[in-house]
Simulated scan of single mutants.
Amino acid sequence: MAKHGARSMVAALALVAGGAACAEDVPAPGTLLDRVVASHQLRVGLPGDYKPFGVQDPATGAFSGLDVDLTTGLAHALGAEPVFVKTSWPTLMADFAAGRFDVLAGGVSVTLDRQRAGFFSVPTDVDGKAAIARCADAAKYDGLDAIDRPEVRVAVNPGGTNERFDRAHLHAAQIVLFPDNRTIFREVAEGRADVMITDGVETRLQQKLNPGLCAIHPDRPFDRSEKAWLLPRDIAFKLFVDQYIHGKQLDGSYAAAVKAWLD
């Protein structure tokens, strides 16, 4: 029995050694950072409907915006070219889970449920939800209590943190879903809705683009949140992206880009 046991042990060790040798013969899959560098392509997911972060031209399909410029710079820092992939707020996380892109950008707010799916970069912005209304009516909607009334129609784009905020904080107001975030502010400007609640940076921009609309205290938002880029769970890639963003913030080019797009 002892000899038989010894022979079995030798055979088992030989199998393990053989398996190890085979494993060494097969190169390990590289990190996402390695794959982007090797492929010379960085796939960037964008909802494409959120100024100033990223908007898709419906006629040409081209993307423009703050995050478009910055992720293009990230791609070039990796020796790659950006490939912009259209997603939407309702399908954002399903597309991310399906591996359709390497970076999810375009004005994404940091939330714990999104954090479970991947790594967020260092924050690119700190903001919060604020209201925007027709200038003639802005004084009427000076707070959430004034907005949360049965006669008030609150426009919201579905699937993102704007809808989540409205559902959590508005219980009497009429929440009116409007699917096109690029034109939703016309609903307020033309009187088909009374208020929209969105990120303060967007209210500041939209009051410039729509002279009849006024941002309501964007410097005193209803809450605070951060924006960042959502990345697959690859620590080497995250560290590179974080350093890229940090460098842009450190040398002032991020702030300059924000100012350019807001102006």
Rank of each mutant, 00 (worst) to 15 (best):
I235K: 11
D234I: 01
I184M: 15
D263A: 13
A173T: 05
A131H: 02
G19F: 12
R224P: 10
A168S: 08
R149W: 01
F185D: 13
A77S: 15
T124M: 11
D145K: 09
D142E: 13
A155D: 10
A236I: 03
F222C: 08
R192F: 09
K140F: 01
Q115V: 02
P150H: 07
A6E: 12
W261D: 12
H40F: 00
K238A: 03
L32F: 04
D137R: 08
N157G: 14
V55T: 12
G99K: 09
L144T: 05
A14W: 08
I197T: 05
A131Q: 06
A28M: 13
C22Y: 11
L177H: 14
Q56N: 03
L250R: 13
L66C: 08
T161C: 04
G61K: 05
L230N: 04
F101S: 04
K51G: 11
G65Y: 04
D25K: 13
I175P: 01
P218T: 04
D219Y: 09
E81V: 09
V241S: 02
L78H: 02
D69N: 12
A62G: 06
V110D: 08
L250I: 00
L239Q: 14
Q174A: 13
F119K: 00
A20N: 00
M1V: 13
S39M: 00
L104G: 01
A130T: 04
D194L: 08
A77T: 07
P179W: 08
D234Y: 04
T161S: 14
T161A: 14
A97F: 02
A12F: 10
L209F: 01
N157R: 10
V126S: 14
P47N: 07
K248F: 11
I235D: 15
A98S: 12
F84L: 05
A105N: 06
Q115A: 15
I216K: 05
L46W: 01
P232N: 12
K140G: 05
V55H: 02
L231T: 05
L78D: 05
R114G: 03
Q249W: 00
G212P: 00
R233P: 07
I197P: 07
D251M: 05
K86A: 09
A193L: 06
G30N: 11
M1I: 12
F53C: 10
A23L: 13
V37L: 07
A172M: 10
A105S: 10
T198L: 15
V201W: 05
I216G: 04
G247I: 00
L262E: 15
Q243C: 01
L144E: 12
I132N: 03
V44H: 04
R7M: 15
S64W: 07
R182W: 06
H4Y: 12
R186W: 06
G48A: 05
L78E: 03
G212M: 06
P211V: 06
K238L: 06
A260D: 13
P47A: 09
L177T: 11
L104C: 08
F119S: 02
L262Q: 14
A172F: 00
L209W: 07
R220C: 09
K208V: 13
Q56R: 15
I132Y: 02
